[in-house]
């Protein structure tokens, strides 16, 4: 995909955010406490979070104390944010030496797991891979149906269990089928759960345990789905999900809303989890590798 195209998508999605960062009005102003307070307000309103904001502000203060704000300050701030978000692995998924590669997807309720899986499946399919989906969300009414509809649209195969079945048993069956058919990718969907529900987090650990027992080295990726409209709680989600399934990356969804998406900065800064993909639309191919340059550029343009 052309860089320009990607940039446009980001810009479109982040138009509202960009408006908050009305940078033109900065130029020519003195970098004093008032200016910094305003900058703080802008970053916090974009959900960047108190800590990450503080770090960015401190850097600006050090470099520009009592100078005048200009293009350089903007470039400086951009560079700081990009440096924070940089991840050479963005968009790349680990690949197992022998099929199948297993991707485990988890997240809180309503973060967009199932939709993200559909998009991810489509993406991998387009790259010429065979896909199997494991519908381990046996709790929410009709969750498996939702996945089935997506599976059909993207032409992927699917393993499902009965409503209320142990999700680990579905994962078990899915692994069996993936091994038997030697599919390229097995993507495992799990029920949404708040990270505070310890019993559900343990259920998730069990699913992971089963997968790693059935297939060596699996899951090769454990991706946490984060909702871009979420505030600072996303950090807590990242921490606790990582503890239970050793997350390897984040899919940031709903970036096409009015949400500021700034929470990515906070998550990266405080948990070190890289953002792998971003969801920027409702279409099945609206899942893009995360590009910090494009993200930060469109944030300030």
């Amino acid at each position: 995909m052309a860089f320009k195209d990607l940039l446009d998508r980001f810009k479109h999605g982040l138009a509202k955010t960009a408006r908050l960062f009305d940078v033109r009005s900065w130029f020519g102003r003195k970098v004093d406490q008032d200016f910094l307070d305003e900058l703080e307000a802008k970053l916090i309103r974009a959900d960047v979070g108190v800590k990450a904001t503080q770090i960015l502000i401190d850097r600006v203060r050090e470099a520009y104390a009592d100078k005048t704000a200009d293009e350089d300050l903007l470039a400086f701030l951009k560079a700081e944010m990009k440096a924070l978000l940089q991840d050479p692995q963005a968009g790349a998924l680990a690949k197992a030496p022998t099929n199948p590669t297993v991707i485990l997807i988890a997240g809180v309720n309503g973060s967009g797991k199932t939709t993200s899986i559909a998009k991810l499946a489509q993406r991998l399919k387009d790259q010429g891979n065979s896909i199997l989906l494991g519908a381990c969300d046996t709790f929410r009414a009709a969750a498996a149906d939702q996945l089935a509809i997506w599976a059909e649209r993207s032409g992927a195969d699917m393993v499902r269990g009965n409503a209320g079945a142990d999700p680990a048993s579905v994962a078990h069956d899915a692994c069996d089928r993936a091994l038997a058919r030697k599919v390229d990718y097995l993507i495992v969907d799990t029920a949404g759960r708040l990270h505070t529900q310890t019993h559900l987090m343990r259920e998730l650990e069990k699913v992971r345990g089963i997968i790693s027992r059935k297939i060596e080295g699996a899951p090769h990726e454990s991706l946490l789905v984060l909702d871009a409209t979420n505030g600072q709680n996303a950090i807590q989600q990242a921490r606790i999900f990582s503890k239970s399934i050793a997350c390897s990356g984040v899919i940031l969804t709903k970036l096409d809303g009015t949400a500021k998406g700034g929470v990515v900065v906070a998550v990266r800064q405080q948990t070190d989890l890289p953002v792998k993909f971003v969801g920027v639309g409702e279409g099945i191919d609206d899942l893009q590798p995360f590009d910090p340059d494009a993200f930060v550029e469109s944030l300030f343009s």
């Binding site: 959900d47 309503g110 409209t229 505030g231």
Partner: peptide, 15 residues
């Protein structure tokens, strides 16, 4: 309204 929402909560509720 999702209690996990960040600064955007007010904007969406407002809209």
């Amino acid at each position: 309204c999702d209690a996990l929402t960040g600064q955007d909560a007010v904007a969406s509720a407002g809209a």
